[in-house]
Simulated scan of single mutants.
Amino acid sequence: MTGTMAHLTLAFGILGNIVSFMVFLAPIPTFYKVYKKKSTEGFQSAPYVVGLFSAMLWIYYALLKTNVLLLITINSFGCVIETVYIAFFLFYAPKKARMESLKLIILLIFVGFGLIVVLTQFLASGVTRGVIVGWICLVFSLCVFVAPLGVLRQVIKTKSVEYMPILLSVALTVSAVMWFFYGLLLGDFNIAIPNVLGFTFGIIQMILYLVYRNNKPVTNEKIVGIGKIITELGEQKTPEFKDQKVVDVVLKLNDFKSADILPVVAKNAHKLDHVATEPQALHKMPYHTIEVGA
């Protein structure tokens, strides 16, 4: 029985490594786009910094244990690939995004991880040190697995799965299953418990995908409509700018929420430059007809 358990543990650990390896490689298409455009655009570095911190934390925990070599192998690869992603991001990011990323790296990697190592080394010893680090890993992993709640909320709100990559959701769910059984067979609940949450959220994501997979995103249709209205307003460049045209456009915009309008207005601001230079055209504009609210 002991031999069978050992073989099962090894099998789940290897499968966990394989699936997690593919999950770590998932952002490559994103960074290929960054490379092609020579810009990070709206992408954030936070997921990769958090990924690096998590990998480092699990390696530290594994080094305090004696039988979790497969936890070290995958997280070592995770440290390397996340570092590459972060370096790539910093190279192509604008100055403001680069500075924010560096602050996060210093705060989480150097200060956060550094304090965990120093405090556990000096204030704890032996088995107690491993227990403390295990609890830190457990709590942090639970926080990371809660992150998809934002995606689930967006899917339910928009009734669209446009921003929920199903292949990644499936891979994360399978990974959670593999690591759950690996931790369970080892008797290490610091590994097993967080993956219960990961598996649960993964199943919910797949159910939502099946429910909304054929729905068209409503928000996109609204944005297209807003864009057309703003373009229509922007085309009125003649000195004889008609007040009635402005009123018609404002009444149309009144049908949309401010959350839909603002991003498109910002994107099309150049089309409205002439309004700022021709203020006399707007002196009769009924501002009270625009409702700003959720």
Results as ranks from 00 to 15, higher is better:
G130F: 04
V118F: 14
L142G: 03
L102I: 14
D248F: 09
M56T: 06
L262I: 15
S141T: 06
V247F: 08
S169G: 13
Q121C: 02
S125I: 06
K267I: 03
V50F: 10
V144D: 00
H7T: 11
V246C: 05
T73C: 06
M1T: 05
K103V: 10
L210Y: 08
L90E: 07
V111Y: 07
G42Y: 02
L149G: 08
G225V: 05
G3N: 12
K159W: 03
I136A: 10
S141C: 07
F24Y: 15
F77Y: 10
T40I: 05
A281R: 12
L10H: 08
N215V: 01
F31Y: 15
P165K: 00
A93N: 06
F91V: 07
P165N: 05
L184Q: 01
M206L: 15
G3D: 15
L172R: 08
L90P: 07
T238D: 15
A259E: 14
F43E: 03
V170M: 12
K245F: 09
I106E: 02
V224P: 00
I14C: 10
I109S: 06
I59P: 02
Y85K: 11
V49C: 10
F145P: 01
Y92Q: 02
V50S: 13
I105A: 06
V155S: 02
A269C: 01
Y61A: 09
L172P: 00
